[in-house]
C-alpha cells in the first residue's frame, strides 16, 4: 500500500509540475482532484470536529430526554445557524444576514479592546522601553533604539491620508518609504527561504521516497 501511495503521490506531483511548462490536461486533472479532495477532507473534519461537538451534541442531549431547561437555550444559536440554509431559496436569502450580523458583531466587539492592547499600547511601549534604560545600553543599542523611533514615526507619517505630503511631512514620509522598502526587502529574502524550502521538500520526496522504491 505504501509503495502504491508513493507512486500515486509522485504521479500527482509531476502532474502539477507540468504546469511549469504550460497548462495541460494532466495539470487540470490534478487541479480538479485537488479541489475535490480538499473540499471532501474539509467536510469530514468540519463535521467531526465542528458540527458534531458544537451543534449536534446539544440536540442529542435533548433527544435523549435528559435535558434541563437551560439546554433548550442551546438550540437558539443552532436555529440561527440553520438560517444559512435560507441561501437555497432566493426569496429568503436575506435571512442569512441574521447569523452573519451576529458573527460580524462578535468579531468587531472582540477586536477593539484586544487590538488596542496588543497592537497599539504594547507596540508604543516597546518603542519607548529602550529609552528608559539608556544608561545600561551600548552604543549599538542606542543607535538601534533611535533608528526604531525614527522609523516608526516616518512610516506612520507615510500612512497619513488627510494631509498633503509636502514639506516636512513629505520629507518624513519619504524616509518612511525607505524604511518600508528595507522591511519589504527583508520579507522578500525570508520568503525566498520559505518557498525554496517547499521545493526542497518535494524534491526530497521524489528522490528519496519515490526513486528509492525503484533503485
Amino acid at each position: 500500500m505504501e509503495t502504491l501511495g508513493i507512486w500515486i503521490a509522485a504521479f500527482l506531483t509531476l502532474c502539477i509540475y507540468s504546469f511549469l511548462y504550460r497548462d495541460n490536461p494532466f495539470y487540470r486533472f490534478a487541479e480538479h482532484l485537488f479541489v475535490g479532495v480538499a473540499v471532501g477532507y474539509g467536510i469530514v473534519v468540519q463535521i467531526h470536529q465542528g458540527f458534531i461537538p458544537f451543534a449536534w451534541r446539544p440536540v442529542e442531549t435533548i433527544i435523549s430526554g435528559e435535558a434541563s431547561p437551560m439546554d433548550f437555550i442551546k438550540l437558539i444559536p443552532i436555529a440561527i445557524g440553520m438560517l444559512f440554509f435560507a441561501r437555497l431559496s432566493p426569496r429568503h436569502t436575506w435571512l442569512i444576514r441574521y447569523p452573519l450580523a451576529i458573527l460580524i458583531g462578535i468579531g468587531a466587539g472582540a477586536a477593539i479592546p484586544n487590538v488596542l492592547q496588543a497592537d497599539i499600547f504594547a507596540q508604543v511601549r516597546g518603542t519607548l522601553t529602550p529609552f528608559s534604560q539608556l544608561g545600561t545600553l551600548g552604543a549599538g543599542e542606542i543607535i538601534g533604539a533611535a533608528l526604531m523611533v525614527i522609523g516608526v514615526i516616518c512610516t506612520l507619517t507615510y500612512f497619513f491620508f488627510s494631509v498633503e505630503h509636502r514639506g516636512a511631512v513629505g520629507g518624513l514620509s519619504k524616509i518612511g518609504i525607505a524604511f518600508l522598502m528595507i522591511g519589504f526587502g527583508s520579507a522578500f529574502g525570508n520568503t525566498v527561504m520559505g518557498r525554496v524550502a517547499l521545493l526542497i521538500q518535494r524534491v526530497d520526496f521524489l528522490i528519496e521516497d519515490w526513486l528509492g522504491t525503484i533503485f
Binding site: 487590538v115 488596542l116 497592537d119 497599539i120 507596540q123 508604543v124 516597546g126 518603542t127 533608528l147 526604531m148 523611533v149 525614527i150 522609523g151 516608526v152 514615526i153 516616518c154 512610516t155 506612520l156 507615510y158 500612512f159 518612511g176 524604511f179 518600508l180 528595507i182 522591511g183 519589504f184 527583508s186 520579507a187
Partner: peptide
C-alpha cells in the same frame, strides 16, 4: 529597520 517599518504598519493597521 525591518522592525521599525513593521511597527509602523502594525500601528496603522490596528
Amino acid at each position: 529597520p525591518n522592525l521599525a517599518a513593521r511597527r509602523g504598519i502594525i500601528l496603522g493597521v490596528a
